[in-house]
Simulated assay, not measured.
Amino acid sequence: MEENKKEGFLDVFIQFIKFGLVGVSNTIVSGVIYFLLNTVILPGVWIVASVVSWVISVLWAYFMQNIFVFKEDKNKEHRVWWQTLIKTYMTYAFTGLILNNILLFLWVNVIDIAQYSGAIISFFARIHIGFLGDAATFSSNMGWFINMIISIPLNFFINKFWAYRQKGGNK
């Protein structure tokens, strides 16, 4: 009789931390490829650099998540690699390309986060730290940050329970 192991909170939390570490490596891969393409190989053709870096970074994420995060359970049905790869691209297309841009539009153009952050912007301007930029730049940067708080856990759960899910309890 085989033991049916249930994942506990700690198991899922450790898996989420591994997912985050893969995400950091994925960001580095994406940034290096984007920088090389946009500055060395195809200077100024940023749209090509953006698309190519996204395609390669999602492929990187797929391999790293298979190895370190969502390992196959040998007691369950084997995942079909190309289906998992397509689902991974669909997940990141949804959260990274569609959802993040819709939310960013809302944060900047509808809600206008800067209107609620005037004191923060003024404080940094007074101490001569201008990296926050003007109100519109601040709104878009804060929107990007809020999007990460939303999209990282969402990516984790979509990948865990859809893209990398294995069916069945036994082979």
Rank of each mutant, 00 (worst) to 15 (best):
W54Y: 15
V45S: 06
I111C: 06
P43S: 08
L59C: 12
V48E: 03
N109P: 04
E2I: 04
W82V: 07
I98K: 09
M64S: 08
T91V: 15
F105H: 13
F145Y: 11
F94G: 06
R79C: 06
F94K: 05
V29K: 00
W162A: 03
L10D: 00
A61V: 09
V108S: 06
N170V: 09
W46F: 13
W144N: 15
S139M: 11
F145K: 08
W46G: 04
F145W: 11
G8H: 07
A136P: 02
V32M: 06
F63N: 11
M148L: 14
G168R: 11
R165K: 15
W162T: 02
A93Q: 00
H78Y: 11
I152M: 10
G8A: 06
W144L: 13
G96H: 04
V110T: 09
T39D: 04
I102C: 07
F124Y: 13
H128S: 13
F124R: 00
N26D: 08
A163N: 08
V52L: 12
Q65L: 01
R79V: 07
N66G: 15
F63Y: 10
K87N: 11
G169W: 05
I158D: 03
Y34M: 01
F105S: 08
Y62I: 02
A61F: 05
G143A: 05
I14F: 12
W81R: 13
T84A: 15
L97T: 06
L106F: 15
E72P: 08
V52Y: 04
F94P: 02
M148I: 09
K71S: 10
K76V: 09
I98S: 07
N109E: 14
F63A: 12
M64E: 02
I158G: 05
P153K: 11
R165A: 15
V55N: 00
V22G: 02
F131R: 06
Q166R: 13
H128A: 06
R126F: 10
L97V: 13
W54N: 04
H78D: 07
K160H: 14
F131E: 08
W60T: 05
W107F: 12
I113L: 14
V108K: 03
A61D: 04
A163P: 03
S50C: 11
I47F: 15
R79P: 02
P153H: 13
V108R: 04
I17E: 12
I47V: 13
I17P: 10
N66V: 05
D112K: 11
V58S: 02
V40F: 07
N159A: 11
V108H: 03
V24I: 15
I120R: 11
N66E: 09
N26S: 15
T95I: 10
V45R: 14
